[in-house]
């Protein structure tokens, strides 16, 4: 009897593993993820105010947990499907490495792509939990308190390429860093990015600044590099197959 139970349990384990590594599951999960995002795009369009808060001052996690389920369910569904897809991707990669089918590069290319994809997902998770954004107008010659340091706006210059000179100060008013902000050229300090959004000279010179923290950014970048490297390798391998 014990033999039959053990045998049945090992068959069940094998079946579960086969499901977890299957491409069929990957295809279904991707299809359902597409459906969730597609629904989300129309929800966002119909509920612009609620959707606008997704890019607001607080991490996405807060939007997701505090928003009404009637408006956030599609993102919950997308996140759950991505969690299943992560498990499927990991299991599929482990199985491919175990089987060692084909040459080394043929084996490696999809795993590098998978690793890149997973890193990008980790990055999104980190940003969803820990991103923060503060926005506001700062007149020339004024300073504002930020988490851990102060920012002083020393000079603004309008023109085709507007600039704002800033000094980052310690609590004792020592200058920690000086920088010049312009569009696409932020200043980074202690995990924060300081961005120039707009300048105004009337009624007084002032800069509209944004200070943001995006903890997943560097991981997303590394993930993207891995993903691209794997895909380039795959393209080269496929083009060499005649």
């Amino acid at each position: 009897m014990g033999f039959f139970i053990n045998r049945r349990s090992s068959i069940n384990k094998k079946n579960s593993w086969d499901v977890l590594i299957s491409q069929r599951l990957a295809v279904w999960l991707m299809g359902l993820e597409i459906a969730a995002l597609l629904t989300g795009s129309f929800f966002m369009e119909q509920n612009k105010e609620v959707a606008g808060a997704m890019n607001g001052a607080f991490p996405l996690y807060l939007w997701l947990t505090r928003g009404p389920l009637a408006l956030t369910w599609w993102l919950w569904a997308a996140v759950c499907l991505l969690a299943f897809l992560t498990v499927n991707t990991l299991c599929c990669s482990v199985e491919s490495i175990k089987r060692k089918k084909g040459g080394l590069l043929t084996l490696l290319a999809p795993q590098i792509i998978h690793a890149g994809f997973l890193l990008i997902l980790v990055a999104h998770l980190m940003s969803s939990l820990g991103a923060a954004k503060i926005m506001g107008q700062l007149p020339q010659g004024a300073e504002a308190r930020l988490p851990g340091f102060d920012i002083f706006l020393s000079k603004v210059e309008a023109g085709p390429q507007p600039t704002a000179q800033v000094e980052l100060l310690s609590g004792e008013k020592n200058v920690l860093k000086r920088g010049v902000l312009s569009p696409n050229h932020p200043v980074f300090f202690r995990g924060y990015g300081i961005y120039l959004e707009e300048l105004s000279m009337d009624p007084y010179p002032a800069a509209y600044l944004e200070v943001s923290r995006e903890p997943g950014a560097i991981w997303a970048f590394f993930g993207a590099i891995l993903f691209t490297a794997g895909t380039i390798l795959l393209v080269l391998l496929k083009s060499g197959q005649g």
């Binding site: 597409i34 995002l37 597609l38 989300g40 795009s41 129309f42 966002m44 369009e45 959707a51 997704m54 890019n55 996405l60 999104h124 940003s127 991103a131 954004k133 569009p183 696409n184 050229h185 932020p186 990015g193 961005y195 944004e210 200070v211 943001s212 995006e214 997943g216 950014a217 997303a220 970048f221």
Partner: peptide, 21 residues
Amino acid sequence: WAYLAWGSYWLWTPKELWTSI
């Protein structure tokens, strides 16, 4: 570009969602 311009590499807008789709 979005990270250097707006401080976030991802914005939740329909266009970005469709790009992901």
